[in-house]
Amino acid sequence: MKAMMINAYGDSDVFEAHEIAQPTLKPGYVLVKVAATSVNTVDTMIRSMGNELPLSPELPAVLGMDFAGTVESVGEGVTTFKAGDEVYGCAGGLADLQGSLAEYMLADARLIAHKPKSLSMREAAALPLVGITAYEGLTRAGVSKDQKVLVHGGAGGVGHVAVQLAKHMGADVYTTIGREEHVALVEQLGATSINYRQETVADYVSQYTEGAGFDVVFDSVGGANMLSSFEAAALNGQVATTVSMLEIDLTQAHFKGLSIHVVFMLIPMLHDFKREEHGRILTELTNIADAGHLTAILDKPEFGLDEIGQAHDRLASGQATGKVVVSV
């Protein structure tokens, strides 16, 4: 089969096309013919940082975590899928798991679900990592009906899904954006837009919560932006973050009594820990999508497998809207 591999860590030009053997089927796994995959920030981090990250695979490696495709065959013990089923998931591209930048991949049946019928292969391939991340963060924060929820980065990969899921959960949703062309997009998804370049945190907390703060802040930007999340949160509020690899002053969080939820959705893949939870969440996302409450926003440039380096560059440019998707 054809695969895009890396033989060294580095810039986006390290990908090389190779012919390699199809994965050998084993118990509990399914062999998937990959139709599409998507690029996540963690993919670019593995490619560029390599051994600095504890989750990077040994070289040579096939990267790519998300996928949508068709089941080719099922291993012993697999009863929930059969050949011909259309599936999606996040099941490779790190540690000892071959990724999705190939014509076929082996996927643990616990990590996948039946693809939403309402979404194309490309749309479905965009959802697994960001969908699981958004769902986990919002549910851990206990989002419920009529709460005021702030999503930082609502036009991004994780953010645009978090906006839709929070809306589906009955919340009153607001989201920060940095580009005027994203106003219509996030409002179409169900959120009130806040241009963080034009409004201070104090301004929008006053305008939208009468100074009380948001019940839940979902921070898909993270890093230093967590201080803005602490400022925007209500007393005893909830903050979920997807990027918390930094030293930060927690004084404000302390005096507000905030609960902080760090979401790192790769734990089941890395440690073989409760992998069935990912399958369960993906099944729930399928139901939400097919009920008309969740879609994937795809960045406009379309890439093929041979253009994976360009796809990585597109995501790294900061100009992408939604998810960068690659057809296989």
Rank of each mutant, 00 (worst) to 15 (best):
A3F: 01
M5Y: 06
N7C: 05
A8R: 15
A8W: 01
Y9T: 10
E19N: 15
E19M: 14
Q22N: 13
T24S: 14
K26G: 06
V30F: 02
A36T: 00
V39D: 01
N40L: 08
I46M: 12
P54F: 12
P60Q: 07
G64N: 04
F67Q: 00
V74H: 09
G75Q: 05
E76L: 07
T79N: 15
T80K: 14
V87A: 13
G89W: 01
G92N: 03
L94H: 01
L101W: 08
K115D: 02
A126M: 14
V130P: 00
A134D: 03
S144H: 05
S144Q: 10
G154S: 10
H160K: 12
H168R: 05
G170D: 09
V173C: 08
V173R: 04
G178R: 15
V183E: 08
E199R: 14
T200G: 13
G211T: 02
V221C: 01
V221F: 00
A234Y: 05
A240V: 06
L250M: 13
Q252G: 04
H254G: 04
H254T: 09
S259K: 11
I260A: 04
F264C: 06
I267S: 05
P268C: 09
D272Q: 12
E276Y: 08
R280Q: 10
R280W: 00
I281S: 06
E284K: 13
I288G: 09
L294C: 04
D299K: 10
K300S: 14
L305R: 14
D306E: 14
E307G: 02
Q310D: 10
V324G: 09
V324M: 09
V328Q: 12
V328A: 14
